[in-house]
Computed example of a mutant assay.
Amino acid sequence: MTARSIDLVPPTFDSVEDERRHRKERLAASLRLFASFGYEDGVAGHISTRDPEHQDCFWINPVGMPFSLIRVSDLILVDDRGEVVAGDHETHEAPFSIHSAVYRARKGAQAVAHSHSIHGRALSSLGVPVEPYTQDACAFFNDQGYLDDYTGVVLDEAEGKRLADALGEAKGVILRNHGLLTVGESVDAATWWFISMERSCQAQLLAEAAGNPVRIDEENAARTHKQLGGEFVGWLNFQPLYRQMVHLQPDLLD
Score class of each variant (00 low, 15 high):
Asn237Met: 13
Glu157Arg: 14
Thr151Leu: 15
Ser68Phe: 02
Arg106Met: 04
Glu131Pro: 06
Ile47Met: 13
Val246Gly: 05
Arg20Asp: 12
Val43Ser: 10
Leu33Asn: 12
His114Ala: 04
Leu123Lys: 03
Glu157Trp: 05
Cys57Asn: 07
Thr12Asp: 11
Gly172His: 13
Ala44Ile: 05
Thr191Trp: 12
Val78Trp: 01
Ser124Glu: 01
Ala109Lys: 01
Ser48Pro: 05
Leu180Asp: 00
Asn237His: 15
Leu27Val: 09
Leu253Ala: 10
Lys107Ile: 04
Met245Ile: 15
Trp192Glu: 03
Ala109Ser: 09
Val85Ala: 01
Asp217Trp: 04
Arg215Asp: 05
Phe67Asn: 12
Asp80His: 10
Ala158Pro: 08
Asn177Asp: 06
Pro11Lys: 08
Tyr103Arg: 04
Glu90Ile: 09
Leu8Trp: 12
Phe140Pro: 01
Thr49Leu: 02
Ala105Gln: 07
Ala94Leu: 11
Ser115Arg: 10
Pro132Leu: 03
Ile216Gln: 10
Ala170Met: 10
Phe13His: 12
Val112Cys: 06
Lys171Trp: 06
Leu180Glu: 02
Arg199Ile: 08
Ser73Gln: 13
Val246Thr: 12
Leu206Tyr: 13
His22Phe: 15
Gly38Thr: 02
Met1Ala: 14
Tyr103Glu: 03
Phe194Met: 12
Tyr39Leu: 07
Phe140Asp: 00
Pro95Phe: 04
Leu167His: 11
Glu218Leu: 09
Asp80Phe: 00
Val246Cys: 10
Glu40Pro: 11
Pro132Ile: 02
Glu208His: 14
Ser30Tyr: 04
Arg104Leu: 05
Arg104Asn: 00
Leu69Tyr: 06
Met65Gly: 05
Val183Tyr: 09
Arg50His: 00
Ala164Val: 03
Glu40Phe: 10
Val102Gly: 02
Phe141Asn: 01
Asp56Ser: 07
Thr12Gln: 14
Arg106Pro: 02
Ala101Trp: 10
Glu90Ala: 14
Leu228Ser: 05
Lys226Gly: 05
Pro240Tyr: 05
Ala164Asn: 10
Arg26Tyr: 09
Asp80Gly: 11
